[in-house]
Amino acid sequence: MLHQSENCQAVTNPILSVGQLRKSFVVEDTFAQRFRRLFSREAASRVVALDIQGFSVARGETLGILGESGSGKSTLARVLMGIYEADSGQAKLAGREVIGASGADRMAVLRQMQMIFQDPFGSLDPRMTVRQIIAEPLKIHGIKPEGGMEKMLQQALHEVGLEPGALERYPSEFSGGQRQRIGICRALILCPQLIIADEAVSALDVSVQAQILELLMKLRADRQLSLLFISHDVAVVRQISDRIILLYHGHLVEELPADKLIDGSRHPYTRRLLESAMFLREGNPLKSRMQNAAPVFSAEGCCYRSICPLQTDKCCEAPPLLQIGEGHRVACWHH
């Protein structure tokens, strides 16, 4: 259908390049439905959580992924990490296939790509000490650090701003911000090239949030890290990213340089997200009344058309992801 989009990727020398990627889930059905399916050829009904065109992340770049809940941001992260199995698609990390990798291939991929999770409480095992938590990836990957384990752990702790004494303590003894530092430390210990941060600061107080963002920026500069930064917070994503992609209902609707977000974004969904963010962050008045109606999704046409103010007949046909400027692509007929 839309293969031209893959030709217009502006990024040279990408660390991660994602082709078309699709993931659907079986809709939770009743026992009766499942029983009926046993005797018919009927397929289980599925909901498509992610169906995107290609994008890529350059070495040392931060790509922000923006969207509201249900837009497929976390599904994307989990598909890349191999937590969910994609229906179809390809993604290459430093030339190595990520999707469907198993065994030694998958381990090799994971050494280069680690994840920071949203919930600093749920993502650390409460019965493991910080030492065990941080050393676990090394153990799993069978790595014996050169200068000795102890030295490596101390260094890693220092790098994320934790006291050396933290090693023997348990996650419950730390505040939310400190726990997030432990999570970051665990993700960094393998020296990966790409970090996926899934709402890494959303659960934190604003003052702590600023500390963690500062830390991520410092690590990024020190280690030449690439970052896939996923969040629903427009202001945070804009501040930390070089480029941003916007997801709506599993589709990539716009991709643009972060500097262009406020003045240059064209998709009506991006504009709507910006308007509410401007209201909350800057106290700007709301121009349009926020609509309450729930969107209706159909398999055909533009994913946003049911609630789009610009909707016309043309929108019954899915818009291609069109290049409209340098590094700027948008999936809208009315751009």
Binding site: G177, V206, Q209, A210, Q211, R281
Partner: peptide, 22 residues
């Protein structure tokens, strides 16, 4: 400091200013 720690959407991009310590 709390105000400065808020992520902003003004044209020039600056990281929010963290409050040191806890």
């Amino acid at each position: 400091d709390l105000v400065a720690a808020l992520p902003r959407l003004i044209p020039e991009r600056k990281l929010p200013v963290a409050i040191p310590g806890s």
